[in-house]
Design a protein around this nucleic acid. Structure first.
Length: 872
RNA sequence: GGGCGCGUAGCUCAGCGGUAGAGCGCUGCCCUUACAAGGCAGAUGUCGGCGGUUCGAACCCGUCCGCGCCCACCA
């Protein structure tokens, strides 16, 4: 064996199996300590910035986070290797209502409510929770290998970001884009707060549609409702203006049952005469449509429920919960003979609080609003004019559909956990919006608004608030706009659209990021949604402990087709672990055989065909992977790397190199350098997705400091089509002979005397390797060919000493013959088709001709082989 | 009611106009000195149905059936 340039001891350091364990943790801490992930705003390098979609501090990360982090980490690691000043901005979201609910549930276990503590103590308590949850999340991120700049860690409620919130609030307020108004809002009677339209989840519930007769005799009209309890607040009945049936009643007053109140019948365009009876009860204070009708007709707004959705209207129903009231009122109406029809069950769409699933109660309420018109217009335009690209493209329509038909955004929440609205109320109802450096108005009777802001208000500022805005920091100048926003399609409206609106507004029309790359949701191995209640949710830590972070990451990346959901099962993670182990062992082999990265690659003339083949393929793969990264095709690039590494490098190049190494000499030296090169580059290519195992192997292989700061491979442009074709041919010959051996029941290790004739295929160079791969002995003196296998112009004759299984061989050949004949028929049919010849492009026709020629050749060859077989 | 998308090997999914693919699973042989978390060989599909366009369709068009998601003020 030739002296290796690499210390032989390095291979001995590697055990025969890859065990991720604590290796991963210590590697990660080393990376952080050495400052690899720190982003320097003063750097001359071009910037590449991505913000983390800040996880809610409601607990710990799930597999969906691991997925998203894998993608962002891979992107940023590659860019860092490419020489960009890379910032992966970490941080977390206070997640107002979600976190408040979690802490309230914790309190409930102690038998306490937030009111027992009072606002200040409760908020204190939430901060304590935040510290715990935040610590847990940071730990998970480190375990995953997230290359974030921890020195820049932010929280949506930290001092700087609170300042950003106050600044933009003030600016919007002064621009007239934030206002206060009393409207029907979505009220959660459990969370006791207003929520925005998109925080309402609609689902089909079973209800009961009752038709109730209002008024008496001639002057009566039947209305239908699923919410009978709201009739207590009815202040009109509406019909369509053109509806002949009710024309005589319009303008009249009729008696509202159970109350004795007289309410008008009025005409309004909104009413659909086709629906139900064509008459609608109008409850302006408890239904958004009715509210609009009420506004148009100047109706009284009669509130009959309190914030808990308990009836407040005077009378027998007072104090009843809305659901109790519903049945009580229906019963009372039935007793009065006023129920003229009932439909049960009646399936209809009902809104629920997305946080606690309680049925939403539309409620008339004074709230703060953002006037989204101009902001949404700009957000839509930025995508329309191509300044921001949405990937995958199909998601654009969803974005436009939302941004272009947006109602004003209710931003106030009656919660305690969040950014307090910076407006002070004066004794006479004055409103003063207070900016960050301003003193709130003093004096008697001035109090700060008690509401807090919707949590998405602060996260909407994330791409620039994390960089120091409103200060004009170096970081802001360097890293805004971000390169890409990687996030789930489920929060396109909640978050992405808001960042677009606020980014463009606060940064004077500058977009927050150039590309929006939307990923799907992680699902279980059967494609089912993961959820705790369904019992199929997985703690990423569990799998990381069992199989390593790399395995989890690789599995997630392999499933990441743009915008589509990602199924993941434990078996698949196991498969990825196996891949990591394979890479591990291939590198061990290389080290044991003196593979090296030292010195220049041997000149082309010194390289064997095999070397040139693998280098040619390597360069093709580098180019492919680059293109796929630029298109956010994580699944495909992972697949390309998986197959290149395993099928081509490990199963063929490494196997072929064994012969070369055994022979020694300059060819072996050249191969050692090429193997070193191929592994070096392959490890670099794999590093962004599986950083840990690649780091361990690469530093051992190269003796250099770290792959994290290594250069990303550049395709050299070296390609050798002839070498590629030659190796493909060699693979054909080897596979064919192996197939024969398997069919003949030969044991894989059994040596067989053989005579090989490879010059016809131009494969002479590979005879030694071929003999090694096929376990073929020299023919010896008494050689008697009992089987002769012609393939691809080469012939391999084997001496099976008369033990050939004729039946098996006949079966195999018959099958091949049938395939060749089918092939011939198909090709002939094509070539006999004038339309095809006239219209098909030349390369296609040529391909068919080649196929036909090969099929004919095969038929002759196989026929001859069959003939040579002894009769059974 | 609108909009988007999906039905391809047992499972989960790629492919989106020129001989049907991957991973896992399955069958057989093998502990061949990097790796049994491995090697080699193999089996498996009327590409949801029906029409149409085309020399040629899993891929384009129409239609039907079955799913999923998003949006919408169905009393």
């Amino acid at each position: 064996m030739t002296e290796a340039k690499n210390p032989q001891s390095s291979a001995a350091e590697l055990p025969t199996q890859y065990t991720p364990g604590e290796v991963e943790t210590s590697l990660y801490e080393g990376w952080v300590e050495r400052g690899y992930f720190a982003a320097d705003a003063k750097s001359d390098k071009p910037p590449y910035a991505v913000v983390i979609p800040p996880p809610n501090v409601t607990g710990s990360l799930h597999l969906g986070h691991a997925f998203e982090h894998t993608l962002i980490d891979a992107l940023t690691r590659r860019k860092r290797m490419q020489g960009y000043e890379t910032l992966w901005q970490p941080g977390m979201d206070h997640a107002g209502i979600a976190t408040q609910n979690v802490v309230e549930r914790e309190l409930a276990k102690e038998g306490l409510s937030r009111h027992d503590l009072g606002r200040e103590a409760f908020v204190e308590r939430v901060w304590k929770w935040k510290a715990e949850s935040g610590g847990q999340i940071a730990g998970q991120m480190r375990r995953l290998g997230d290359g974030v700049d921890w020195s820049r860690d932010r929280f949506t409620m930290d001092e700087g970001l609170s300042r950003a919130v106050q600044t933009i609030f003030k600016r919007l307020f002064d621009d007239g884009l934030i206002y206060r108004a009393e409207r029907i809002i979505n009220w959660c009677p459990r969370c006791l707060t207003a929520i925005s339209d998109i925080e309402v989840e609609y689902q089909d519930d079973d209800g009961e549609l009752v038709s109730i007769r209002y008024g008496e005799g001639e002057e009566s009209i039947v209305v239908a409702t699923t919410r009978a309890e709201t009739m207590l607040g009815d202040t009109a009945v509406a019909v369509h203006p053109d509806d002949e049936r009710y024309r005589h009643l319009v303008g009249k007053q009729i008696v509202l049952p159970l109350t004795g109140r007289r309410i008008p019948v009025l005409a309004d365009e909104h009413v659909d005469p086709e629906f139900g009876t064509g008459a609608v009860k109008v409850t302006p204070a408890h239904d958004p449509n009715d509210f609009e009708i009420g506004r148009r007709h100047d109706l009284p707004m009669l509130t009959v429920m309190d914030e808990h959705a308990v009836i407040t209207a005077h009378g027998p129903f007072q104090g009843l919960d809305r659901m109790e009231a519903r049945s009580a009122i229906v019963a009372a109406l039935r007793a009065d003979g006023r129920i003229v029809a009932e439909k049960r069950p009646y399936v209809h769409s009902v809104g629920h609080c997305s946080r606690c699933k309680t049925t939403i109660e539309p409620r008339l309420s004074m709230q703060w609003w953002v006037k989204v018109g101009p902001l949404a217009q700009a957000a839509g335009d930025a995508v329309r004019d191509g300044r921001v690209a949405i990937h995958p493209r199909e998601m654009e329509s969803r974005y436009f559909g939302w941004v272009d038909h947006l109602n004003d955004w209710c931003i106030s929440r009656q919660l305690w956990w969040g950014h307090r609205i910076p407006v002070w109320h004066g004794p006479d109802g004055e409103l003063v919006c207070v900016g960050p450096d301003e003193e709130p108005p003093g004096g008697e009777g001035w109090t700060q608004d008690t509401d807090v802001l919707d949590t998405w208000f602060s996260s909407g500022l994330w791409p620039f608030s994390t960089l120091g805005w409103p200060e004009e920091t170096e970081s802001l100048a360097k890293f805004y706009p971000n390169a890409v926003m990687v996030t789930g399609y489920d929060i396109l409206f909640f978050w992405v659209a808001r960042m677009m609106m606020f980014g463009l507004y606060a940064m004077d029309g500058e977009i927050p990021f150039r590309t929006i790359a939307l990923h799907g949701m992680v699902r279980d191995q059967f494609g089912k949604k993961m959820s705790k209640s369904f019992g199929n949710a997985v703690d990423p830590l569990e799998w990381m402990d069992k199989y390593g972070s790399d395995a989890v990451r690789f599995t997630l990346a392999r499933g990441a087709n743009p915008g589509t959901d990602v199924p993941i099962g434990e078996d698949w993670v196991q498969g990825s672990r196996n891949f990591a182990n394979k890479v591990w062992n291939a590198t061990r082999f290389a080290l044991m055989n003196g593979a090296t990265v030292e010195g220049p690659l041997p000149a082309e003339a010194e390289l064997s065909t095999t070397d040139r083949w693998i280098l040619s393929r390597l360069n093709a793969v580098v180019a492919d992977v680059d293109a796929l990264y630029d298109d956010y095709q994580f699944a495909k690039l992972s697949d390309v790397l998986f197959h290149f590494a395993w099928d081509e490098v490990f199963d063929w190049y490494v196997e072929l190199s064994k012969t070369t190494f055994a022979a020694g000499g300059p060819a072996a030296d050249a191969s050692r350098r090429v193997l070193g090169e191929v592994l070096d580059v392959t490890l670099r290519l794999l590093h962004p997705v599986i950083p840990f195992v690649t780091e361990t192997l690469w530093t051992t292989l190269t003796g250099r400091e770290s792959l994290v700061i290594a250069d990303w491979p550049a395709a050299s442009g070296f390609r050798d089509a002839a070498a590629e074709a030659e190796i493909v041919k060699l693979q054909e010959v080897v596979t064919e002979v192996r197939r024969f051996r398997a069919d003949q029941g030969l044991q894989p290790g059994q040596r067989v005397p053989a005579r090989v004739e490879l010059s016809g295929a131009g494969l002479q160079e590979h005879e030694a390797a071929l003999r090694q791969l096929l376990r073929l002995q020299p023919e010896g003196e008494s050689f008697a060919a009992t089987a002769s296998l012609p393939v691809a112009g080469a012939t391999v004759a084997l001496d099976l000493s008369g033990t050939i299984d004729v039946a098996a061989e006949r079966k195999r050949l018959a099958k091949d013959l049938a395939a060749a004949e089918k092939e011939k028929t198909q090709a002939e049919a094509k070539l006999g088709n004038e339309g095809f010849l006239a219209k098909a492009p030349e390369p296609v026709v040529a391909k068919i001709r080649t196929r036909l020629a090969k099929a004919e050749e095969d038929i002759v060859r196989i026929g001859a082989q069959l003939e040579r077989l002894p009769q059974a």
